[in-house]
Design a protein around this nucleic acid. Structure first.
Lengths: 213, 213
DNA sequence: GGGAATATGTGAAAAAGTTATCAAATAACC
DNA sequence: GGTTATTTGATAACTTTTTCACATATTCCC
């Protein structure tokens, strides 16, 4: 992989959007598409799409466009989703359970294979086919189960502790639903999703009508 | 509100971060802080924070910094979160139920007051104190219950239908957890959170180690 | 009250990201 | 096989966002 330039994080996010759009086209047995049509489909500009793809190589055919299946495969490979990922879940409260049972993850190749919690009443149980361990055991359990991605769905107050446990177990990629900053070693990537924050964003635009471009 | 310039969406998102940080400081009875200290706390640069605040006015005291409580109140007012918001939820599956039971929303002043679903087995029931109506009834139910923000937690295939129903009920601000684009009238704001997409982002960085700035 | 220290707010510079433009490449058609 | 119509990929122009740097304002202390 001889890519030199660093890729904007916004481009990576849009890659997911393209993959989703291409999946849809493939299901509809569409063979080719174009940056113009894709742009229309996902609500971006054609130039944006071509620019994004250009970071990674040349996938199109001038005069013709892109072969749906080919481009889908290429992008899936770039994103690293042409495989199955095993996921560890920390926190089996309401949100954690919802994530455990969420079909959208499995459909995209992300499989929760192990869960952790602090609650003795939950430890040892099996939910949705996933066994729940004591979070304190993560450092021992994780290396044996192959999970590479962690999801933190514990209350903010326990988030750092949960994260430390996952990192101690060897995870380097973590998706956190807990509000607030989490400190991790430099080789660990944390992506945060703060649900209340998304609502606050809406609140802002609802309060200040018309401020949006 | 005599703001002329339009505010970057990234700035609005960071406002939420600042509010959260200030809440924490307030709980710790800290009276003043500075852009430098806040920056350290949230993991941004001091200049960034000052620039963000500058869009909205002058809140600091040169030589002293910011009064925690004052700045918190100002930002909460700007974000429109110095009040209670009533929220309508579409889709009471696993994810929907988790959101219904999620404390983080209520703590920040977002209260789910009504829910909708298509499943006859759920319609008419009351979960977590919230009554579930037929989504088809949204246009009649919503105007009576005062909800201003909608959350879509239905499968992708029903997302457009659910959104249409919420919009028909008068909602202008919608948070969608469904993958894919949703078409709405221009005066309706949709914020999307795609959980699988966040994992794909992690997958990318896990696959292409060291590509991150 | 005056002087030193501190931290803001802002304008200018730099960096990053997006959009527009166009030459080059390919396909479709006659 | 040559001509026309498409559509890419790349470069350039533009816009937005972030960082830098410093004059200005305020506090604190003597």
């Amino acid at each position: 992989m001889a890519r030199a330039k660093k890729i904007p994080s916004t481009t990576v996010s849009r890659l997911s959007v393209y993959v989703r759009a291409l999946q849809k086209l493939r299901n509809e047995a569409v063979v080719t598409t174009s940056s113009e049509k894709l742009a229309e489909q996902v609500g971006l500009t054609a130039a944006q799409i071509r620019k994004d793809l250009a970071y990674f190589g040349q996938f199109g055919v001038p005069g013709r466009g892109y072969y749906v299946e080919n481009l889908h495969n290429e992008l899936a490979m770039i994103l690293g989703i042409n495989r199955r990922w095993e996921v560890a879940l920390a926190g089996v409260g309401h949100l954690g359970y919802a994530l455990l049972a969420y079909n959208g993850f499995k459909k995209q190749g992300f499989d929760v294979v192990v869960a952790f919690d602090k609650d003795p009443a939950k430890i040892g149980q099996t939910w949705e086919g996933v066994k729940i361990y004591d979070i304190a055991e993560a450092r021992h359990v994780l290396p044996e189960c192959g999970a590479e991605i962690g999801i933190i769905a514990v209350p903010a107050a326990s988030a750092q502790e949960a994260c430390d446990a996952l990192v101690a177990g060897g995870l380097k990629s973590i998706l956190s639903f807990a509000p607030g900053r989490i400190i991790v070693p430099p080789d660990v990537t944390v992506k945060r999703v703060e649900l209340a924050m998304e609502l606050e964003w809406l609140s802002y635009y609802a309060t200040n009508i018309g401020e949006r471009g």
